[in-house]
């Protein structure tokens, strides 16, 4: 079962710009027949302005490959080549109201076909720098090759490090066995042995809360402490283009607003969990971090 958006279905059932464009002067062939996806993009470019007058696709592939191809041709018609090249695979996925993680490679193929076709028009040789492996982390669509490369490039040794560098394993955690197997294999290349570090069971937040027995803080001191903790976390969030702001404190509930890139990020829940853990440790009491959007403040009576 695939959870396709209505937009994907629309472009699959009734694809736009199917077939080769007549008088095309840019052709991009990408994909791999062994993987079951292959795409030929044909462009008709006006030489003076470099505007894409017409675009057509021929695709051997699944529903989302056909939909991605159709979406791409719709998006680039009328654009200049330079503007078209700015389209990312995420833009293609967004145009289709999202793709399942297993299908994100279909949008990657679209972007690559575009690069190949532009290179062909300009008389350049396009080289594919992208190798795709079996999907490991379904939450964030991270494949085996990417994990292997990241482990080698950064000398990673633990599943936690792999998650920090690639996001893989940061969601439901079902793929941790797979990541451990990859670590075992890659580390063995250098004669190293993978050792599963850390606790086998994640510590529950409540248990950690018991640790420090600090004297009870007054309201103002407590809020200042909370602000201080958030300030210490802020640089890490800003590095990823996000931010956090304190909205309100109501006994055990601490209301925060995640902003910027944090909004809608699949890692948001993890981020909140991390903030909560830090606050519990610093305050020495159990608290609950509750995400709120700015708009809902009125109804909260804040």
């Amino acid at each position: 079962m695939w959870d396709y958006s209505e937009k994907v279905k629309e472009h699959f059932y009734d694809p736009k710009n199917a077939g080769a464009v007549e008088g095309a002067n840019g052709v991009g062939d990408v994909g791999s027949i062994s993987c079951g996806d292959a795409l030929r993009l044909t462009l008709k470019v006006e030489p003076e302005t470099e505007v894409i007058l017409d675009a057509g696709f021929q695709t051997f592939g699944c529903g989302s490959a056909i939909a991605s191809s159709s979406a791409l041709t719709e998006m680039i018609k009328g654009m200049t080549l330079d503007d078209a090249l700015k389209i990312s695979n995420q833009d293609i996925a967004d145009y289709l109201d999202g793709l399942p993680p297993e299908k994100m490679h279909c949008s990657v193929m679209g972007r690559e076909a575009l690069q190949a076709a532009v290179a062909n028009y300009r008389g350049e040789v396009w080289e594919d720098d992208h190798e795709e492996g079996a999907l490991v982390c379904k939450c964030f669509a991270i494949d085996e090759v990417m994990i292997e490369d990241t482990i080698r490039a950064n000398n990673l040794h633990t599943v936690e490090e792999v998650t920090n560098y690639t996001k893989a394993g940061g969601g439901c955690s079902s793929c941790h066995e797979g990541i451990e197997n990859i670590l075992t294999r890659v580390l063995a290349e250098n004669g190293e042995t993978f050792v599963a570090g850390g606790a086998a069971v994640p510590a529950p937040a409540a248990a950690a809360a018991k640790a420090p027995e600090s004297p009870k803080m007054g309201t103002l001191a407590r809020i200042r402490k909370i602000e201080a903790v958030l300030d210490s976390i802020r640089p890490a969030l800003q590095a990823d283009g996000g931010d956090v702001e304190l909205i309100d404190v109501d006994e055990k509930s601490i209301y925060v607003n995640l902003t910027g890139a944090c909004t809608g990020c699949q890692m948001a829940a993890m981020t909140l969990g991390g903030i909560q853990q830090r606050l519990i440790e610093e305050l020495g009491e159990f608290v609950k971090v509750v995400p709120v959007a700015k708009e809902s403040l009125v109804s909260m009576g804040a």
Binding site: F12, Y13, S34, G36, G61, C62, G63, E102, K103
Partner: peptide, 29 residues
């Protein structure tokens, strides 16, 4: 490709299945 066939079959109310890679999430057929 098989998944595309299945989706169009499904649209006309026919249920079958495919050995296609894309129906299983793996890349190999």
């Amino acid at each position: 490709e098989g998944e595309a066939i299945l989706l169009l079959l499904n649209k006309v109310g026919i249920a079958a299945s495919s050995g296609s890679a894309c129906t299983s999430g793996s890349l190999e057929p």
